[in-house]
């Protein structure tokens, strides 16, 4: 049984099955958008948290660290409550759309990007602080400086976010609803097809998901090695 499922899965991939393609491309669109948005917010925020000292800073750091383990279903549920018809943002009618899924994934991975960025930037600033102070570089000016100089480490941070976004199922299931052709992504489709007993499609999707994640990590590794060699 599983043998034939495996073969069917490979056939679906090899034939560029349109249903499969639609699901894969929506998955990529949702997760990549979420990572890009979260990176634009999370990287500067993490760097600021590393550089500025203010009352309540420790609490914020602990909260972000704790939220790194936020269960996807909880992230999904909170976005669901916000966007449902009766919720504060209900009038926009975003529930069960890809946009809602992007919002849920941003919430899910933002704490990872903020916390890991803060750690990396704090380390690097430990090394740079005296030199930057000596040149009278302001705190605000240090943020882009350190983000750029930590770019190698930050690629890995962004990948950690992408890994979490593309692998989770709970958040997108709740706010997306797994609607065929509209909000069905790889992880929700795998859950559905498995429960229907359609193991071939589920397995095919699983293979593609793993392949994509491996591909992205491989690319990041090559970029990282290349820059490391040229930057010392």
């Amino acid at each position: 049984m599983s043998d034939s499922a495996f073969i069917t899965a490979l056939q679906l991939i090899a034939n560029f099955d349109p249903e499969l393609l639609a699901i894969v491309s929506l998955s990529l669109r949702v997760s990549l958008s979420a990572v890009i948005i979260a990176a634009f917010i999370g990287l500067p925020l993490g760097a600021a948290l590393a550089l500025y000292r203010f009352p309540g800073r420790a609490i914020i750091i602990v909260v972000f660290n704790a939220l790194m383990g936020l269960p996807p279903v909880v992230a999904g549920l909170s976005v669901y409550l916000l966007l449902s018809r009766a919720g504060p943002l209900g009038e926009f009618g975003l529930l069960f759309t890809p946009t809602a899924m992007i919002v849920a994934q941003v919430i899910l991975i933002l704490p990872i990007l903020v916390s890991l960025t803060r750690q990396r930037i704090e380390e690097l600033h430990g090394e740079y602080a005296e030199q930057l102070s000596s040149m009278s570089v302001s705190k605000a000016r240090r943020i882009p400086t350190l983000l750029w100089d930590a770019r190698l480490a930050l690629i890995t941070v962004i990948l950690a976010g992408l890994g979490r976004a593309s692998a989770e199922v709970g958040a997108v299931m709740i706010v997306g609803g797994n609607i065929d052709g509209v909000t069905r992504v790889m992880t929700t489709a795998i859950v559905l097809e498995t429960s229907k007993g359609n193991l071939a499609l589920a397995l095919g999707l699983g293979l593609i998901l793993m392949l994509l994640v491996a591909l992205l990590n491989g690319m990041a590794y090559l970029i990282g090695e290349g820059t490391k060699r040229s930057l010392g």
Binding site: E127, Y128, E130, Q131, S134, M135, T145, W148, D149, R151, L152, L231, G232
Partner: peptide, 14 residues
């Protein structure tokens, strides 16, 4: 106006 050169130069990764 002052500048300082350290024992181990702190150079940016550029």
């Amino acid at each position: 106006r002052q500048a300082m050169v350290f024992q181990h130069p702190v150079l940016l990764r550029r």
